[in-house]
């Protein structure tokens, strides 16, 4: 190898080569699991359809989970945090300018007086 792949990070190292090896290992595992699969599977037959207690299967486009419904639990758990954070982004220009000046004032106190 002309180039040394290893990235030295002072206290550790990283080599993309290990990642390649792990990918190969993962592919082999996938193949093994695949090989254990059902041999009698046929595409395009009734066999493919899921059985939902006899109910008709909804259309594919109808069950697509849209972005707004993802991470519902996460948003619900952190409701308090977001209730404090989101109103800061109020969209009012003078608020933003006030933030700019406030940071300047805080840094004045921190840097000039300390």
């Amino acid at each position: 190898m002309a180039f040394d792949l290893t990235l030295l990070t002072g206290s550790g190292f990283w080599n993309p080569f290990f990642w390649l090896i792990s990918i190969v290992v993962a592919l082999i595992l996938i193949y093994i699991i695949y090989a254990f699969g059902e041999k009698g599977y046929k595409r395009g037959t009734q066999q493919v359809k899921p059985f939902i207690s006899g109910n008709p299967e909804p259309s594919k486009a109808g069950v697509h989970v849209r972005a707004g419904n993802l991470y519902w639990g996460y948003m619900d758990a952190l409701k308090v945090y977001y209730a404090g954070l989101v109103p800061i982004h109020s969209g009012i220009l003078t608020d933003y300018l006030l933030w700019l000046f406030s940071v300047a004032a805080i840094l004045f106190v921190l840097v000039v007086l300390l």
Binding site: V86, H89, S90, G91, I92, L93, T94
Partner: peptide, 10 residues
């Protein structure tokens, strides 16, 4: 009025 120009927020 800057208070009313705030369609972009959050």
């Amino acid at each position: 009025d800057v208070d009313k120009i705030r369609e972009l927020r959050e």
